[in-house]
């Protein structure tokens, strides 16, 4: 039986990945910071240092001899996957959305060309991948659940001075039926009030493009929709003042209906819209609120 070795710092990610691997017929070994589903699981104290985790995975890998080593494609997971792969002189593919095994090779899908295309890549095993855990539908699988404690070796390559959890507000973008997504067409932060008024009428969640959350900081990061943020699938998405760069459009592709309001009649957003309104959001939105 082929063996997989998994590391994910979040138990939810770990379980999604391990269920997929089990479904594919792997015996699943893993390292996690909390109890999670695996045939053989090492549990350690939480540790977010790349050098320590790489050393731990190297040690476990030398014991287990996995055909495939899988990380969750978080920032930490990607960082460690590449360092581990280089140490083991193995190929590594990050940001995998899907995986299939065929004999002694594995096929994965990932975005390419900034999200314009999806590439299917095949690599022979042994290999390393980092998987976008949220892209995997978890399934019910039964595992041997042999669990043992593990002490991650301490490394001092870099020293952590402080760590602060980001303040997260609970945002229901992924579950929302209606989403209003705003972009740089909005002139100033105060104008979000106008959008909020519309959102209340429609019982909608508000999302945004990357510049609004990451550059202007008008909205928290967890509201960012796109390749490096949330991928949403509402019944209706109303896009306001969004140019529609591919890195953003990737995040809205699973919406059932898309309405966009934009001053530029030829913005890239047009091909991602079912209804494309050419006009000034500052004139249309107040009128729209009156009509709802």
């Amino acid at each position: 039986m082929m063996k997989a070795l998994v590391f994910a710092e979040k138990a939810d990610h770990f379980n999604r990945i391990s269920s997929k691997l089990k479904e594919m017929g792997f015996e699943v070994h893993g390292l996690s910071f909390a109890e999670a589903n695996a045939d053989h699981l090492y549990i350690s104290e939480p540790n977010y240092d790349y050098a320590s985790i790489t050393a731990a995975m190297e040690k476990i890998s030398d014991d287990v001899g996995p055909d495939l080593v899988v990380f969750s494609s978080t920032k930490l997971g990607k960082e460690v996957s590449a360092r581990f792969a280089q140490r083991k002189n193995l190929p590594c593919i990050t940001e995998c959305l899907n995986l299939e095994v065929e004999g002694s090779s594995i096929t994965v899908s990932r975005y390419s060309l900034g999200g314009k295309t999806i590439a299917k890549l095949r690599t022979s095993l042994p290999g390393v991948i980092a998987v976008v855990a949220d892209a995997i539908e978890p399934s019910e699988q039964s595992f041997q659940m042999n669990i043992q404690d593990f002490e991650i070796p301490v490394s001092n390559q870099i020293r952590t001075v402080s760590r602060e959890e980001k303040k997260r507000e609970a945002v229901g973008l992924r579950e929302a039926d209606v989403i209003i997504c705003i972009g740089r067409g909005l002139r100033k932060k105060e104008d979000i009030e106008l959008v909020k008024e519309l959102a209340e009428k429609l019982n909608a969640e508000i999302g945004c493009t990357r510049p609004l959350s990451h550059d202007y900081k008008w909205l928290p990061e967890e509201r960012m929709i796109g390749l490096s943020g949330e991928k949403v699938s509402p019944k209706l998405l109303i896009s306001i003042g969004v140019s529609g760069q591919i890195q953003h459009a990737v995040g809205i592709m699973n919406s059932k209906t898309v309405i966009a309001i934009n001053t530029d009649e030829n913005a890239p957003m047009r091909e991602h819209s079912d209804y494309y309104v050419v006009g000034d959001l500052y004139e249309i939105i107040p009128e729209l609120i009156r009509n709802l």
């Binding site: 960082e79 996957s81 590449a82 360092r83 593919i93 990050t94 940001e95 900034g114």
Partner: peptide, 8 residues
């Protein structure tokens, strides 16, 4: 968007 270069 592979993000491997610094680690490797």
């Amino acid at each position: 968007y592979s993000g491997q270069m610094a680690s490797r």
